[in-house]
């Protein structure tokens, strides 16, 4: 399996200014702190964690909306920093995104056909003619289950689920290798969510596209992902095959997070691990392991040394002093 997109030691720090007239940097919010993982062709990498854990910042870094403070992104084995203009345009065409709120994602003053065609119009490397583009728009809309007859409509004429399909069509039209799905199904109702997730899985099979599936709902991540990363305060704490993580839940935070998930049947209610305390701020991280103040198994070393990700099985890593 070839790695399509690889993140190596990505750090994203945001400077914090003091509130005086002559502003000075007084510290950094460590939104993403040394994160590495890779996306493989035709596979889904799921990223879970609570709000503020840095999962959406990672999406922004991959999408080049933010420049990483440190670290490198490799696309098809080549570092992004060394990309020439043409290669960069190619990267933009290959890495697309679908966000959470379909209302905000679609320009209300543009017709659906223009919205979907835009990435193609901007990166028109094959010099497609107008009618070619119209055909491709119709084809892509059909692929996501929207009738091409409605391509002259405006976004507000569609329901939430349909708008998310249109957003997906826009991402698909350039034939991307990677689609970043940042909470793409979170705002949808259960029945619509299932429709979109099934559509995404079918498209993956058909087009061999890789997904980065970011969500806070564990059940949807489980349904979509092949591999999984659990993030807490900017760091990957556990990282491995999705099925294995869900079964084993090695890291104490992963355990707590999964036990906090709502049961799918009243018989499956288990005594949950209730975390005490609040999530520390990413501006003022605790010494040592960033989870130790809330961890029920914290030891002395946890407040002194930050644990690294270490292999616990093949392709399975955990950052915890309890595990070698």
């Amino acid at each position: 399996m070839s790695s399509l997109l690889e993140l190596k030691n990505i750090k994203e720090y945001f400077p914090v200014m003091n509130a005086r007239i002559f502003q000075k940097v007084v510290g950094y919010i460590r939104a993403v702190d040394d994160v590495s993982f890779s996306l493989n062709e035709g596979r889904t990498f799921g990223l879970v964690g609570e709000s503020g854990c840095g999962k959406s910042t990672i999406a922004k870094v991959i999408l080049q909306l933010e420049k990483p403070t440190a670290g490198a992104i490799y696309f098809r084995g080549k570092a992004l920093t060394g990309f020439k203009r043409g290669e960069m345009a190619d990267y933009h065409a290959s890495v697309q995104a679908v966000f959470q709120d379909p209302t905000s994602s679609l320009n209300p003053r543009m017709r659906v056909a223009d919205i979907v065609a835009e990435p193609l119009v901007i990166n028109n490397s094959q010099n497609n003619s107008r009618s070619d583009i119209t055909d491709m728009v119709a084809q892509t809309l059909m692929q996501v289950g929207i009738s091409p007859d409605r391509s002259k409509c405006f976004p507000h004429e569609f329901s939430g689920g349909q708008r998310q399909r249109i957003a997906l069509a826009r991402a698909l039209i350039v034939g991307p290798g990677v689609i970043i799905l940042d909470e793409s199904v979170s705002a949808l109702d259960v029945s619509i969510q299932a429709q979109i997730m099934n559509l995404l899985r079918d498209l993956q099979e058909e087009l061999n596209v890789a997904y980065l599936f970011i969500a806070h709902d564990l059940a949807t991540v489980k349904y979509m992902s092949h591999r999984l990363g659990v993030m807490y305060l900017g760091k990957l704490l556990e990282h491995g095959p999705a099925g294995k993580i869900i079964e084993e839940r090695i890291h104490p935070y992963t355990k707590a997070l999964f036990s906090a998930a709502m049961p799918s049947h009243p018989d499956l209610i288990k005594e949950e691990v209730v975390l005490t305390g609040e999530v520390p701020s990413a501006f003022d991280l605790p010494e040592g392991c960033r989870f130790h103040p809330r961890c029920d198994r914290a030891m002395k070393i946890c407040s002194e040394v930050e644990p690294d990700l270490k292999d616990v099985a093949e392709n399975y890593q955990v950052a915890c002093h309890l595990y070698p």
């Binding site: 999408l63 933009h92 890495v95 994602s105 990435p119 826009r170 350039v174």
Partner: peptide, 10 residues
Amino acid sequence: DFVALARIAG
């Protein structure tokens, strides 16, 4: 988001 998506599209 549509502004971010336009940037993403290049």
